[in-house]
Design a binder for these strands. Structure first.
Lengths: 115, 115
DNA sequence: CCAACAGTCAAGCGACTGCTTAAGTGTTTG
DNA sequence: CAAACACTTAAGCAGTCGCTTGACTGTTGG
């Protein structure tokens, strides 16, 4: 099994900041330039750039510069990877609970003995 | 709309560390004591405790002490919350792409007009 | 009782984060 | 060409993170 550990580190780290989640939120409704992304945010442009670098470094966002304008768009594969990591653990947990329920339903009053 | 922003900060921050994801991984297969969790990890017991505190602070893990042993178990609601945050953004993005495809398929060579 | 056990508290340390300001670079526009 | 524009780079700084060691608390088992 491949270990995406470092990649997961970066994605979850990227999503662990409200400003960066705001940027992702904005980008799911379509591409935007750096200053369009910065406009509603209460911080300097370099700060926004740094957030964008974090988002690009983990592959959540891709950007392209044309003339003097950099256009950013979201890249959903990495989003899906993070989602699936969580989903697998959650379903794994739920299946364990189901098996436990089955055992308890099948043998409601047995205790220490084996067979 | 409720703002779970701080809560999401904490969960994603918690998941942004490989050791903590290992602990979550271990706990989805059933409850464990602190030293059971620490045993495969290449670090001191206090370090493991600190990771557990992070996991408890964001609600991913709950623990209970009986005698001298603290038993930890996973708490899947917060896991689901994080999963859903991602899922909503991803599907939102996919729906936008679908609408875009529809428009392009319907009017393959039109430009400015409405209706 | 006392020793081993399971966990906890506290201080400290180097690395990393999220910002800032100041000074750039390259690209239009008048 | 010169000024406005849209970023970009670099330095610096306060605060947080992940970890360590050392000392300590409470709980069993012989």
């Amino acid at each position: 099994m491949l270990n995406h550990s470092e990649s997961l580190d970066r994605v979850f780290q990227a999503l662990a900041d409200g400003t960066r989640r705001d940027i992702v939120e904005r980008l799911v409704s379509g591409p935007a330039s750096v200053s369009q992304l910065a406009q509603p945010l209460a911080m300097s442009l370099p700060a926004v750039m740094q957030h964008l670098q974090v988002l690009e470094a983990c592959g959540l966002v891709r950007s392209e510069k044309v003339g003097r304008v950099r256009t950013c768009r979201i890249e959903p594969q990495v989003l899906r990877m993070a989602e699936e990591w969580i989903a697998r653990r959650r379903t794994s947990w739920e299946q364990r609970l189901d098996r436990l329920d089955d055992l308890l339903a099948e043998k409601p009053s047995e205790q220490g003995s084996t067979s």
